[in-house]
Write a protein that binds this DNA or RNA. Structure first.
Lengths: 197, 197
DNA sequence: CGCGTTAATTATCTTTTGTTAACGCCGCTC
DNA sequence: GAGCGGCGTTAACAAAAGATAATTAACGCG
């Protein structure tokens, strides 16, 4: 990969970063390609990986005691992916992260960046905005569960990010919405006959 | 209110704050008491209020186009309360915040603190940890919607914070869990006959 | 080509939830 | 103390979702 690409990425992330700091994190950054189905972070791992998705799709899921699998999160191009348990809470990941498509990442060890940029205002700001952005997304998702019915949640999903329909198997979208695949199939049928709104 | 109380609060929030900065924010801080039912932040307001709840309970709710009211959030003693729309996203609040009990707050204008502590590492760190904490809570709440049934969510609620049962009307707890009051009543009945787990 | 695998749909039945309305209880006011 | 309103419960019915299983279609592979 070209260093200019990494440079552009970090200049966006850390606006105002000092050149020498930029070099340090650039050299710690690697490009990585995940094949479809390949696991990125395994449940139980304490992974310091912080990835920026250039292309592709990562799914985070959890398997309960009955063996049922639930999709907790989807992340796609231009988004950051990391084990929140590990990065934010310093504990082993409760979820497995794997690629649904061939996925290209810029990957860096979070602890390394943290050390090298410790007490640098630029890093503090970037970190804050990164977490803030995730918080905004999380709060909106909570609202969809509190305020909307499953059908309305599905309608909103296909409105907000329609390409997911082609890229993610329905069964994963179903559990992401908190419903079963069978139920999602029925909702799709209902919507066909009544495409209102 | 005693200044020592404010001092303790901010020393906890901004570990390592400089004395002169501490004084500035202390003087900008006021104690405020809300009577039961009193509105703290109204929907549509762009409120810079940041409150630390010393005692009491605040509920944030939303009224949809059909006039149905949904509880989005509850905050209680030792927690921070603010309009996330306003503070974090710089937009008018989509929710109304009001006191369910007589509530005592330490209140400060967030923009003021922001100005006075701008570019101070201590403030950046505190702000990060504040948002991080909220993110952790949000992610856990999302998981309850994805991974648990309404009954399991209710069981978890009364396990994690049993005093809410006495302090908050059931109808508000119901919408907080994403279900109707009638349904919550049935869940309670089911649990009585089957207190397992 | 047939075989096994997987995903999506469909069917059937059960369980749960939503909706609406009624009822009793309690606290408040006049 | 009579009347009133809000709340939790219950009932009755409709709608939706869960559980399970069968069916179909698409696909890769030997």
């Amino acid at each position: 990969m070209l260093d200019s690409e990494k440079t552009a990425f970090y200049l966006g992330l850390f606006k105002g970063i000092a050149p020498e700091d930029l070099l340090k994190v650039i050299h710690a950054t690697q490009q990585r390609v995940l094949e479809p189905g390949e696991i990125y972070i395994r449940e139980g791992e304490n992974s310091p990986r912080l990835g920026y998705i250039k292309e592709g799709l990562i799914r985070s899921y959890h398997v309960n005691e009955k063996g049922m699998e639930s999709t907790v999160l989807l992340r796609w191009e231009e988004q950051i992916v990391a084990s929140y348990d590990s990065i934010l809470m310093q504990r082993p990941s409760r979820f497995t992260y794997h690629a649904l498509e061939k996925t290209t990442l810029l990957e860096v060890n979070y602890h390394l960046v943290e050390q090298q940029l410790e007490n640098k205002p630029v890093f503090e700001k970037a970190r804050y905005h990164f977490v803030l952005d995730m918080l905004a997304q999380s709060l909106e998702r909570i609202e969809t569960f509190v305020l909307l019915t499953p059908e309305e949640r599905y309608r909103q999903l296909i409105k907000d990010k329609p390409d997911l329909l082609q890229r993610v198997p329905d069964k994963h979208l179903a559990t992401l919405l908190g419903i079963t695949p069978v139920s999602l199939s029925r909702i799709r049928k209902r919507i066909q006959s009544k495409p209102s709104r």
